[in-house]
Amino acid sequence: MNTAVAHDYSGAPLGAPVYELTQVSKTYARNRVVALENVSLTLRKGSFTSVIGSSGCGKSTLLKIMAGLIPPTKGRVILQNQPVKGPRRDIGMMFQQATLFPWKTAVENIVLPIEIRDGKAAAKKAMDKAHELLEIVGLKGFENVYPNELSGGMAQRASICRMLITEPAVLLLDEPFSALDELSRDMMNMELQRICREQDATAFLVTHSIQEAVILSDDIVVMKPRPGRIAEVVSVDLPRPRTLEMMTTPKFGEIVDHIRGMLDKGEDM
């Protein structure tokens, strides 16, 4: 059963399709694990989609395929009308760990993607932009600080900037804030929402937190394991911009309960 194919987005303004996944399957050759089976998914421009599901149901695998880090065994991945056949400049990625390099200052870390793609001179030119980005995420004054001196939350902010410096059209986020405490996490999520709106970026977030998924997303892809596939896509028609206060509304609670029910059912399978 695949209910995820180009379904109707209620309420939210619709953009053109950015990402199109058709019947994507992945079997890891090494251990014959079927990590994904027939996953079809469409992300529209400016939308925010979350994936949620139990551990090992193939979320990270899906993200890696979308990012062009690993090839699918079957199926098609199209991004901005071009098939994804490897890492691309219009994709920005973020992982659970900030992974800043300790021998580079905050700004130097942020312009690293430019340095790698276009060389040192281009990286130097991008410094101004890096400063702007740092200011946006509230790290003004920390430009020339080494990562050792940044807290976990500050490091993740810096890695957001690194992701944004190449102005990617889509953001792929694999549990980016799960290493943070709950308070900073909520703040970072609101910041993420703001950045996505400002940059009109399309975001795809892997998370284990139902609350986080609901407060951020237009759509939530609920996955079930063995083999990893889509169980349901839940639309969240809370108004935008979202605020943390919305977490106390009955509507929010309803959606959370619905997803929790789905996930519990998934556990029995």
């Binding site: 880090l69 400049r89 990625m93 992982f95 760990q97 790698i116 793609r117």
Partner: peptide, 14 residues
Amino acid sequence: ADENARMLFKTMGA
């Protein structure tokens, strides 16, 4: 170097 750093460099097309 850990898996994250390798993956990061891969995404940057290094």
